[in-house]
Amino acid sequence: MIQFRNLHKSFGTQRVLAGMNLEIPERSIFVVIGRSGAGKSCLLKLLIGLLHPEAGEIQVNGVDVCSLRGRTLNDMRSRFGMLFQGGALFDSLSVYDNVAFPLREKTRFSESTIRRKVHERLAQVGLSGIDEKFPAELSGGMRKRVALARALVSEPEILLFDEPTTGLDPIRVNAIHQLIRDLHKKLRFTAIIVSHEIPEIFSIATHVAMLHDGTIIATGTADEIQASPNPVIQQFIHGRSEGPIEAN
């Protein structure tokens, strides 16, 4: 169980989170929706300790992440994987070395075990046979899938997805969503997905929350969110320019 309690975060004068509360059940596919700049990516970075809140706490199975430093923070991070918006693949490493990187640096597996695991993950994301290519030689969709393979290779308990399908065509969007659902079925991790792909993302979500004005204004199943009478939610999920949310 992951719990965000009364979380506050600002960047200069811009307030991003204002007393946000949220509970994320284990092994769920939890999707967070909201406008650009609403603080969704910030939420993921706070959870993994890349940012620190001004107030509030984030508990992962009862441990306050915000109070962790050094080795204890690294131990906690070892339970996480993250798929960054742009993939964040290391430019100087090949696809194989990128995926093998966490295993080489954080485990004592033999090179043959690493090779087997890397090839297994690359096969799962449908990218066998591109070991020697470099990130610059890949399309956006392929980069995201390699990044997904890298995030999965150390078998994390919790996987964070920061807009995993931004900039991809509709076919690739659905392919990535399908892939996340299939891998979730097999590996049973907790997935927290920040996404703008509405309504496509609802097809894989077990839970959805909407972040607006620094707080979570609704949580529920995808159906519950879509049926919500809240005009803010209705305007957002239908992409209307007129309504309580200002377009600018």
Partner: peptide, 17 residues
């Protein structure tokens, strides 16, 4: 700098490195 803005440095931190 490019590693920073493309989140490669963040990725290292997330990997507990």
């Amino acid at each position: 700098g490019i590693m920073r803005i493309t989140e490669q440095i963040d990725a290292l931190e997330v990997m507990a490195l």
